Simulated assay, not measured.
Amino acid sequence: MSAAQTLQRQLREFQKNPLPGFNVELKEDNIFVWDIGIFGPPDTIYEGGYFKATMKFPEDYPFNPPTFTFNSEFFHPNVYTDGRLCISILHPPTPDPMSGERPEERWNPTQSVESILISVISLLTDPNISSPANVDAGVMYRDDREKYNEIVRKEVEKSKRDIPENVAIPKSAEDFIIKNKPEIEEDESFWYDDEEVDDEWDEDYMSDE
């Protein structure tokens, strides 16, 4: 399967079963460039924000990872000042002893758009400050959390101007959970509301992994 076919399939799956908290569209109908909108998770300093980003996929996807770049101002230990996201899952699957990353932490072809976006959300609330891409943000997060939070809150307020008119805004933690059983073509990563998923389907899904 070509990279374009793989991405078209993943886009169809994402459109059938959207990941809560994200708005995804193609940029100028280019299957290799996705415009991403991220709603700040509730009960975090990002709550109420809407952060725009671009994900660009290589021609040999999924054997190599896409790049992920924030277009909105985004002060974070793991985001370079030019907006590029630095996260293990997006690092090429080649040996790099200097990074200190284990091979299983880096990109592999079983990853998907969903697993990338879930990793981004996880990083928002749990930054890796041991090797920050933005040293100033990493030091401030560690030593002056109040000042760090103040900067982020200002960015959140600015970002609200970019919320599209036709997009539903998640307003609670419940809005960030998939409650209906998704249609899965192959092994993918999702958030689930376990109480809503029947045991029989859960066993079938697990057996496919």
Rank of each mutant, 00 (worst) to 15 (best):
D43W: 04
L124Y: 06
L85Y: 03
L11F: 15
E203Y: 09
V135N: 02
L7N: 06
M206V: 00
L85E: 02
P132L: 00
S119M: 07
T44Q: 10
C86R: 06
E203W: 07
P62A: 07
I36V: 10
I184M: 14
E114C: 00
P93L: 03
N166C: 06
E28R: 11
A4S: 15
I129A: 13
D60K: 11
H91F: 09
V24M: 13
Y205S: 11
R106D: 04
Q10A: 02
L124C: 08
N71G: 09
K56P: 09
K147S: 13
C86G: 10
K171A: 10
P66V: 00
R102Y: 13
N166P: 05
S112I: 00
D126R: 09
G138F: 04
R12K: 15
N23M: 01
M55K: 12
E209M: 12
S189L: 15
G37A: 08
T54Y: 01
L19Q: 10
T44D: 12
L19N: 09
K154Q: 15
S72C: 13
E209N: 05
D43E: 15
L26T: 09
E157W: 01
Y61Q: 11
E47W: 02
K160Y: 09
F39M: 02
P109N: 13
E73H: 12
M1R: 13
P20W: 06
K154F: 01
S72D: 10
D202C: 05
V197D: 06
